[in-house]
Design a binder for these strands. Sequence first.
DNA 1: AAATATACATAATTTTCTTATGTATAAGTT
DNA 2: AACTTATACATAAGAAAATTATGTATATTT
Lengths: 115, 115
Amino acid sequence: MYICFMSNSKLYKGSLTTIILKLLNENDKMYGYEITQKVKVLTKGELNITEGALYPALHKLEAEGLLDVEVAKVDNRLRKYYKLTENGTKETVNKLEELAEYIKTMQALVNPKLA
Amino acid sequence: MYICFMSNSKLYKGSLTTIILKLLNENDKMYGYEITQKVKVLTKGELNITEGALYPALHKLEAEGLLDVEVAKVDNRLRKYYKLTENGTKETVNKLEELAEYIKTMQALVNPKLA
DNA sequence: AAATATACATAATTTTCTTATGTATAAGTT
DNA sequence: AACTTATACATAAGAAAATTATGTATATTT
């Protein structure tokens, strides 16, 4: 295989932040590489987060005060553990509401009979 | 009010093409402005497609051979009616499958218990 | 007469991704 | 011992798709 691709579906654009926040909400603290692996497993390979997308996204969330970072050294290798701040937890709730709303709206559009 | 905004949720990024194709699949032929109004009604105002997003998207779909265009003059005003080509109809099926897959994947991520 | 609605369009900018590349250590394979 | 894969971070160049702003023009409503 080659490096690492996201799904060819463009729909995932804009959902990376929601995914990161939700995983951190469930797992207390995680490091970047761990997130990519977790997503791969949870989605049965459907979704492969690229490093070029993930790391800038984590840095942005940290800059916005939604994540705290804590550096650790394990097996002589660097790890950056991220965890939600208080604001991060609040924002997670918002993002999950937005996702639920998005799904509802899209279903109203593609299946108006059920709306 | 001001001009016209899409929802502040970033999740809609990447779903405009799917929306357009699905609406044209249901309505045979539609013009741009009609699409914006239809989306507004169907989503109860949740989603307002901006012209800056819509028109380039329509032009792109036409260039890709997924849409045919037919110009009409109604009440002395221009209208460009778009309809699906044969390939456009095929692509609509793909896009709707991708949407269903996306929703399934995201639910596996945010609600792993139900996966 | 002025404002809003209808109907198209495009340009500048921003956001968010893909793709490619770089560094470094550990573990497994040939 | 050498090579490859896995772990773990990072950033830069470019593409894609949107937002925001602006422009043109006609019809309708206030």
